[in-house]
Structures are given as structure tokens and as C-alpha cells.
């Protein structure tokens, strides 16, 4: 499921309406990111829940439906695991709820930022620019490498580990070639 979310996020940057790449939308995204961390930590649970619900609806309205479903799905799984563990070990259930809401709200804003931020918007900050390029390139290759492992019959935890290890190796190898690409365009980046 995560691979289809990655494809949706990367594909969205090509077909998204222009407004999501505007300066005002960028400011709103930064504000949302700060809120997504601050609200679940300090505000009452109901308010945090309202924020998460709004963010999920926003993703769905923007056309990122798979991402919205993924956020809800992972939140449910995370809450189920953490709640049952805390229940069995007599842990703090309210803190578990807050943590789950924090994870869900930050995940949805990260998805929102990743899908509505083109690398060109970060060109003024070479290191951030390189990071966003390496990130996007690695995600694209993760999708390819996952297909290769699946075609070879890999599955289960082994498949996940193979993809994770290959992705990390790829991002390191890819950084140097992308640095060359930026240098050829006149941007000095220190590796």
C-alpha cells in the first residue's frame, strides 16, 4: 500500500493545480506543519481529533485519496497496537492517544508537503534542494526496486527488508550523481 501512496505523492506534483505551489499555500503548509505537532501535544483530545480529521479530509479533497486512506489505516493499526500494549501493561492510555494523534497529524502534513512542493521551490537553499531531489529520486527507485524484488518472488518481512536496504544504498549512491547534475547547472553543493 505504501508504494501506491508514494506513486500518488510523486504523480500529484505533476498534475496538481497551480495554486498548491503558490507562496500563500507554502506559508499555510508550514503553519499546518507546526500546528500538526503542537495541537496534539497541548490541546484537548477532541481538538486534536478534529485537526487530524480535517487534514485527512483536506488530502482527500485535494485528490490524494490513497494517502488519506493510508493515514487513517496506519493510525488505526498504530492505535490498536499501542492501546492493547498499554492496556496489558497498565500504561497511560491518554498519552497513547495523544501520540497516535501526533503521528497521524504529522504524517498527513508531511504527505501534503511532499506532494505539493516541487524541488524548484527549494532552489534558493542548495542543501534542501539536493535533499528534496535525492528524496524524490530515491522514492521513484524504491518503487522500481520493489517491483524487481516482487518479480523475483520475494515476500513478507524479507521483501520489506530487501527494499529498505536497497533504498538506503541507492540514496547514498544517487547523491553523488545528483550533486554532479546540480554542479553542471551552476549550483555548488558540498556532499
Amino acid at each position: 500500500m505504501i508504494l501506491s501512496v508514494v506513486q500518488e505523492v510523486l504523480g500529484y506534483r505533476v498534475k496538481a493545480p497551480r495554486i498548491v505551489f503558490s507562496k500563500w499555500f507554502s506559508i499555510a503548509k508550514i503553519a499546518l506543519f507546526i500546528l500538526s505537532i503542537a495541537v496534539p501535544v497541548v490541546a484537548p483530545t477532541a481538538v486534536s481529533l478534529g485537526l487530524v480529521a480535517s487534514l485527512v479530509i483536506l488530502l482527500a479533497v485535494l485528490g490524494l485519496r490513497r494517502s488519506a486512506v493510508y493515514t487513517v489505516f496506519t493510525a488505526a493499526i498504530l492505535y490498536l497496537i499501542m492501546f492493547s500494549t498499554a492496556f496489558l501493561l497498565h500504561g497511560d492510555l491518554e498519552r497513547i492517544t495523544r501520540l497516535t494523534l501526533l503521528a497521524s497529524s504529522s504524517l498527513s502534513t508531511i504527505i501534503l508537503i511532499a506532494s505539493t512542493t516541487k524541488p524548484s521551490m527549494l532552489r534558493r537553499w542548495p542543501t534542501l534542494y539536493l535533499f528534496s531531489i535525492v528524496f524524490a529520486n530515491t522514492l521513484k527507485e524504491v518503487v522500481d526496486i520493489a517491483t524487481v524484488y516482487r518479480a523475483r518472488g520475494s515476500g513478507g518481512l524479507r521483501y520489506v527488508l530487501q527494499v529498505v536496504v536497497a533504498s538506503m544504498a541507492m540514496s547514498i549512491a544517487r547523491t553523488s550523481t545528483l550533486v554532479d547534475s546540480l554542479k553542471a547547472r551552476g549550483i555548488e553543493v558540498t556532499e
Partner: peptide, 19 residues
């Protein structure tokens, strides 16, 4: 190995904007 932008147009315009 060298693509850095989200669309072909942005990819081509990148160097003109940088320089």
C-alpha cells in the same frame, strides 16, 4: 541520473533560472 525537477518544462527551465 541527472533529473532534478518534477516536470520536463521545469527541468529545462532550471538552468536558465539558476544562471
Amino acid at each position: 541520473y541527472g533529473f532534478v525537477e518534477a516536470t520536463v518544462e521545469d527541468e529545462i527551465r532550471a538552468i536558465t533560472r539558476i544562471l
